[in-house]
Write a protein that binds this DNA or RNA. Structure first.
Length: 418
DNA sequence: CCGAATTCG
């Protein structure tokens, strides 16, 4: 349980990814802060959006860290911060069981909210070498183009997502008229360095400010941490036992109307479908996420689940556009075997050009987190879209998708138009 | 959470 081989290089790359600085600039910035990533990031973002290069004055972060003494999250919050050097994932019991690990995890994650401003805390301590997995982002704009009915092409899966680079903006909240959406399997079942990874995840959110985030493999401690550090978002979870999905909705842009959880009757992995109804730009938007049954051996069950979710998309109100984004674990063949996607349902990756650059969302040759020796890749993470049916032309349409990758992790993004 | 090998009923 160590997480710091090659630290400086990793930190440099990571810092460059998160900040958009070039590698050399990132290295310099880190050196200036004695390779303390937390301080360097804090200092960088403190002055980003104007003069990220300027000073270092406020390098004294108001962050946090773990107290091994506290017992409850609440208490810890009151106590404030401490230090969190290195990757002291202290320990281990984190490994026992998910439930038992809560307390230790909470301790590890204690973070002090920055002063007042309603701004978002950018608290980070990304020292881990195993990062989260995939992320997808969708942007929805408004500009109706494209098909007006008639062209109901049935999309049969076939290709793959591609890798793309994150164009991290230094001005997180840029509003280009669309909305962005991320899908991210955070691999919460792997507890190694989870505290650090959790910080990284929240930092990524703080940096990119997506309007919607769909998570898979969330466990209680992460949910709690997430809720604490994403104050500007509604958090809806797909369960509360074991591991589950969750959806974050930026309050300033989306109204949360309702949500429901659709069980998959025969899942053996506690999987289900989370549906959230929202209003955005005065339009109805139905968001869904799921983590379909894993492994090749469970193809049948996975196909059943896929049919279930496609049916749910199909049955969504006509007035509502629908976006499903999740970890489907699908192989293309499994989709074609059930007849491909139904009428008017689109696979974002296909719709947006089946870019080979953004081909695989799960790739053992790019992401070595799991330590697999054999190389293989799949387009596990997918985004489906169905425009509102009672509007012509459609108001919401896909704009772009990208797959981000940093360190050994992958991040995926997509966009839409409206 | 792959692929290939291994274990077990």
């Amino acid at each position: 349980m160590e997480c710091q081989p090659n630290k400086e290089n990793e930190l440099g790359r990571l810092f460059a990814d998160v900040t958009s600085l070039s590698q050399p600039e990132a290295i310099k910035w880190l050196q200036k802060h004695s390779w303390n990533l937390q301080k360097a990031l804090d200092s960088y973002f403190e002055f980003a959006g104007g003069s990220a290069k300027a000073s270092k004055q406020k390098a004294d972060v108001d962050i946090v860290t773990e107290t091994s003494s506290s017992k409850h999250i609440e208490e810890m919050n009151q106590e404030g911060m401490q230090d969190n050097s290195g990757c002291g994932v202290e320990e281990t019991e984190i490994m026992i069981t998910i439930r038992q690990s809560d307390e230790e995890f909470a301790e590890d994650l204690t973070v002090q909210e920055p002063k007042s401003e309603g701004a978002t805390p950018i608290v980070i301590d990304l020292v881990s070498d195993d990062e989260p997995s995939e992320i997808e982002e969708i942007t929805i704009l408004d500009d109706a183009v494209e098909h007006d009915e008639g062209q109901l092409e049935v999309i049969t899966e076939n290709s793959h997502f591609g890798l793309a680079t994150v164009s991290a903006s230094n001005e997180p909240d840029v509003d280009d008229g669309g909305i962005t959406m991320l899908s991210w399997n955070i691999d919460g079942l792997d507890l190694e360095c989870l505290p650090q990874r959790s910080r990284a995840i929240c930092n990524t959110i703080a940096l990119h400010r997506p309007d919607v985030v769909c998570f898979q493999e969330v466990i209680d401690p992460f949910r709690d941490y997430l809720a604490k550090h994403t104050k500007g978002y509604h958090l809806v979870t797909g369960g509360d036992e074991g591991y589950y999905t969750a959806i974050l909705l930026k309050k300033s842009r989306l109204d949360l109307l309702s949500h429901e959880i659709i069980p998959y009757p025969t899942t053996r992995m506690m999987r289900n479908l989370l549906i959230v109804k929202t209003r955005v730009f005065g339009l109805d938007l139905c968001l869904m996420t799921s983590h379909l049954e894993s492994t090749r051996a469970c193809a049948k069950e996975r196909q059943k689940q896929l049919k279930c979710l496609l049916e749910k998309i199909h049955l969504a109100p006509q007035s509502s556009a629908v976006i499903f984004a999740g970890d489907t674990n699908l192989r293309d063949k499994e989709v074609s075997e059930i007849g491909g996607l139904p009428w008017r349902m689109r696979d974002m990756w296909v719709t947006l050009g089946s870019s080979s650059e953004t081909q695989y969302t799960w790739d053992t040759s790019v992401n070595d987190n799991l330590g697999f020796s054999t190389k293989s890749h799949f387009r596990f993470d997918r985004i489906y879209f169905r425009a509102a049916l009672d509007l012509s032309p459609p108001k919401l349409l896909p704009r772009s998708l990208r797959l981000m990758s940093f360190e050994s992790s992958l991040v995926l993004m997509v966009e839409s138009l409206l």
